[in-house]
Nucleic acid binder design. Sequence first.
DNA 1: TATTATTTGGTACGTACGTACGAACTAATT
DNA 2: AATTAGTTCGTACGTACGTACCAAATAATA
Lengths: 193, 193
Amino acid sequence: MQRKTDKTGPSEKILNTAFECLSTRGYAAVTMRNIADEAGVALGQVTYYYKSKENLFLEVINMMIHQYLSEIEQKLESATGKKQKFTALMAFFKELLQVNPSLFRLFIDFTAQALWIPSFREKVNSLFERLAEIIEKNLMLNADKSSWKSDYSPRSVAKLILGALYGTSIQLMLSSDSDVSFEPLDLAESLLE
Amino acid sequence: MQRKTDKTGPSEKILNTAFECLSTRGYAAVTMRNIADEAGVALGQVTYYYKSKENLFLEVINMMIHQYLSEIEQKLESATGKKQKFTALMAFFKELLQVNPSLFRLFIDFTAQALWIPSFREKVNSLFERLAEIIEKNLMLNADKSSWKSDYSPRSVAKLILGALYGTSIQLMLSSDSDVSFEPLDLAESLLE
DNA sequence: TATTATTTGGTACGTACGTACGAACTAATT
DNA sequence: AATTAGTTCGTACGTACGTACCAAATAATA
């Protein structure tokens, strides 16, 4: 959940600032000038290193994908056993909602943009696919044919789990802060143990 | 799935055109002038009937909420028996994805906006809450304590189901058109029968 | 019919946007 | 040291935006 803060150059600084602006203010409200100002560079620098706005934001998505995937993969692989892996998966989403909600907001924002912008769609879709792949590999290894998963591919099961986590998390983010309970997520966990 | 096309006045015409623009081009790409032009009225008319852009789009959300809820409620109540109600619920989402994907895209778009704009958040959250309420009332009537739902409130179960449908549908919309299969949705249906 | 009230449509204001461009400056190479 | 390549920054262009405003037209009211 920790972004790289390496200041190896203005290029990284711009990218990190772009991420920061997007995750705190939202896609629709962020401009190239905002990013340049907050990064402490001139506007021309932004278009110098990243050709266009769309391209810059695509790079932000790439950064997010890399971090999301490596973090969740690490947490899942460090857990041993099916049950613990499930717990780790739920803990990841819970932590996301509690510790870093702005990151998840940005994820949702990009998902919405992906419905209209083909280049975004490609990126976000691959993120979902790879998340489903991780879930599948970590939780579906011993696909016991006796259970409810019998008739469906492990990938479909993974997509359903991922969808449930995603959709439930959105509802939790939207609900008023006072009555935030993770009961639906806990339920999902108990369902699949 | 059918919008009202009553042309009782310019007010309704503007609202319907706003919906049309939003659902086909997306939130970020629609302007007041677009709506005015496509509705065949002057720009001043839009601000005359709807004070601001935000207010106009809020009215569009209201329209969507009304239609979504009445349609899904009608379909669920016309079905008899738990199993048939589940089937009807899944059929609603499948039909949404196949017949009217732009409506669902707009729903997702508004959800993303709701994370940043408080007035939107209120509306979209109430839509989710009322959807969960409908699911709860139609499918959780005889909450048998012996099943897996025992320890959790019916509302949490409903939210999990709704989240799974929402999250899975998004993945289906994002995936490339060639390999669209409703397997995850079918799986969800079989899971809960 | 006279008068108000409501509606229509056109115009203009102020602002902000992404992008392009080109001088100055620095670093690297020969 | 000379020349080239890479980088920084300010500025400006063209466009588009939401909103405000107001005269003209229409409808409603008396």
